[in-house]
């Protein structure tokens, strides 16, 4: 049962509220996951520290080619941001797929990362974008790659009882870079992803310079398809190369049988198709062609 609900005005005040409560308090941003977990007993806390009054956490900004998304920025704000649509299309698309319109008006992208669900749409996109989280802790600011914040299914290395994610950042896509997000779901709204794939590519002279491919839920967190990425490095952009790389993602994917998400067999067959589509779209977004 909650005993208190606090409104810090600054990041340092938020961290000190957490400290004062010695592990019994927890950060709330959107709360759309947390408020389901508390009554079910999955999360125990007696005080919520609401970060929505900290003005610097409510902004999307770009400085020196790096985009910063504050921890109180919602999915709909990200999905509707022209900057994100232009410079990180995969993330805008991923943010528009989460939950329902109402959920996206409350739920934050930083919260999607902190909740550490393996197929969190925006986390999958952020891993492909090479994103970093900035974390305010009692010992100062720390940084971690989004893909390194997964400590298991639903478990994050970020401890919301003593740490606060302040913002997520990633390099804006430059010329010759493209991103894409592809999702398979049972219906078009309010559906969990059966599979989701995000990719980022950089092209140079008809070749891939590099590619980052992230896919879920095929492991305990968003999974990088490292073999496929290796296969694309400096490779010519042809349908054959993309097809081969798309099949290679299965080396790093271990989908389970799931009543909600489909059978292992089905998802194993479909995953390479989604990766191929994502790669083709990212190449097109980067101004390249696959012929």
């Amino acid at each position: 049962m909650l005993q208190d609900y606090l409104f810090p005005e600054t990041i340092s005040e938020a961290v000190s509220f957490l400290q004062n409560n010695e592990g019994q308090a927890r950060i709330i941003a959107g709360g759309t996951d947390l408020l389901l977990d508390i009554p079910e007993g999955k999360v125990k806390t007696n005080c919520l520290v609401d970060i929505n009054r900290i003005s610097e956490l409510k902004k999307i900004t770009m400085e020196d080619g790096v985009i910063y998304i504050g921890a109180a920025v919602t999915h709909n704000q990200v999905a509707g941001s022209e900057l994100i649509q232009e410079k990180a299309a995969a993330l805008a698309c991923a943010a528009s797929c989460v939950g329902s319109h109402q959920v996206r008006n409350s739920a934050t992208v930083a919260g999607n990362v902190c909740n550490a669900q393996p197929a969190a749409d925006t986390a999958v996109a952020l891993v492909a974008l090479g994103a970093t989280v900035e974390i305010a802790t009692p010992d100062g600011t720390q940084y971690a790659l989004v893909e390194k914040t997964y400590a298991g299914v639903g478990k994050s290395t970020i401890d919301s009882t003593c740490q606060l994610v302040t913002r997520v950042s990633f390099p804006a896509a430059r010329k010759n870079q493209g991103t894409a997000f592809v999702r398979l779901h049972q219906r078009n709204a309010l559906a969990l992803p059966m599979l989701n794939v995000a990719v980022m590519v950089e092209l140079a002279g008809g070749r891939f310079k590099w590619a980052r491919i992230c896919m879920a839920p095929v492991g305990p967190g968003p999974m990088r398809a490292l073999s496929a990425e290796q296969a694309l490095k400096d490779a010519e952009i042809t349908p054959e190369v993309i097809e081969k790389a798309s099949r290679a993602v299965l080396e790093h994917a271990n989908p389970r049988n799931s009543a909600l998400r489909g059978s292992k067999e089905y998802r194993t067959s479909v995953l390479p198709v989604l990766v191929r589509r994502a790669l083709e779209q990212a190449v097109a977004n980067a101004g390249g062609t696959c012929n």
Binding site: I28, T32, G99, S100, Q102, S106
Partner: peptide
């Protein structure tokens, strides 16, 4: 009561949200 049906939708600061997933205190 889980943010899945939308029957509890209200508008907070111009945005539609599920009031079953909003702690009352959040509307301060």
């Amino acid at each position: 009561g889980k943010g899945e049906c939308g029957a509890c939708t209200v508008i907070i600061n111009g945005e539609a949200v599920n009031s079953c997933l909003v702690p009352a205190m959040k509307t301060m």
